[in-house]
Design a protein around this nucleic acid. Structure first.
Lengths: 195, 195
DNA sequence: TTTGATATTGAACAACTGTTCAGATAACGT
DNA sequence: ACGTTATCTGAACAGTTGTTCAATATCAAA
């Protein structure tokens, strides 16, 4: 056998990325073999190399795509006029988006060390750009006298860590809905910056 | 060659655990081979099996020891009389202890999935016990009317995530000292619970 | 229907994996 | 000094790893 009936790069390509993301998130990058990914896609291992130069590039592609989509989604997100409104928009956006893309978020935090230096730098840059979005909101609120923050850089890291933490415990159909989680976290963040 | 001069289980045992922790934290459990650990210790791979039944047990030992020491250290930590004092003690303790044990903390958050179900349950139980320590503080403060928290379970997860996040960015000799980081985080946590 | 591009197989490669164990050496108690 | 025990080596095991590539089957266009 060689080419399979109904085989198309437009189908196999995305399928490889989807299955790779699922498996990497579940077992970790190093613990997943190319043959496992291929089996999940329904193809032989050799076929994967039509779509990625190597295993690391596959991971890098997933991380880069995720970070770019995160930044694009935030850029398209409607936010209010003042700093408090912008902060609320950020908090709700971050929780909402990260819960939808739970697997990709997990990968972006756990598998960065499997990237070579230059690939690592790219993802790190995108993450930094995202953090800067929040930092600017905090800074503007501070300068406008609407927030009371001892250190905006620290507050940025603290808030992002707090929000991202939702992914570790939230389960669909649990005690709380996504909306009420958003509300509660916004309440805590708002208080923590003195707004 | 066989037994080496000056060889002792009291030396090799801890050395194996130390090198394994370092390597696991740096490259991930699955990405580190027994031969790499052995080489770091200065021994052949076979010798490791005098100290651990298998690779997973080595990881489990590291995680269990860490969690037990964390709980023991918190139990021995002096804390004030009221809820606010206890919360401050917890915040400062968590930041301080986690920065000292950065590698073990990293492992405890990243490599849980490499444990079998029964080992996983043990670590999960210890982690839950630690979280309960914070939750009780929040609950007592809430009942005493000293805190204003919409949901103590969520606040517990939010605060722990926020505090643990320090490990991802803090670098010794950076802009801020450990003490000032403690102060700033305590300020944010205090405000967020309305104390 | 023929032709050329596209997509995939299946076997092969050398290196590496966790783990076991008989044999060898050093340390220790007598 | 001697025998016992503790500690480690080095080779071996069977299986897996990422990656390459000639052969082959399907697809789309002419």
């Amino acid at each position: 056998m060689a080419r399979k009936t109904g085989s198309h790069s437009e189908i196999t390509g995305p399928k490889i990325r989807a299955e790779a993301q699922k498996l990497f998130a579940r077992h970790g990058f190093a613990a997943v073999s190319m043959r496992q990914i291929a089996a999940a896609v329904g193809v032989q291992a050799g076929a994967l190399y039509l779509y990625t130069p190597d295993k690391e590039a596959l991971l890098f592609d997933l991380l880069k795509t995720h970070m770019e989509e995160l930044l694009a989604a935030w850029a398209a997100e409607p936010r209010g006029t003042g700093p408090a409104e912008a902060l609320e928009a950020f908090v709700r956006f971050h929780i909402r988006f990260n819960l939808i893309r739970a697997e990709a978020v997990f990968l972006s935090y756990m598998e960065l060390r499997n990237l070579g230096p230059e690939n690592f730098a790219v993802i790190e840059g995108l993450r930094k750009a995202y953090e800067t979005e929040l930092e600017r909101i905090l800074q503007e609120g501070q300068e406008a006298g609407r927030f009371l923050i001892p250190d905006t850089k620290l507050a940025t890291m603290a808030i992002i860590a707090m929000l991202t933490g939702v992914n570790t415990w939230f389960r669909e159909g649990g005690r709380l809905s996504r909306a009420s989680v958003e509300n509660i976290y916004w309440d805590m963040v708002r208080k923590s910056v003195g707004a």
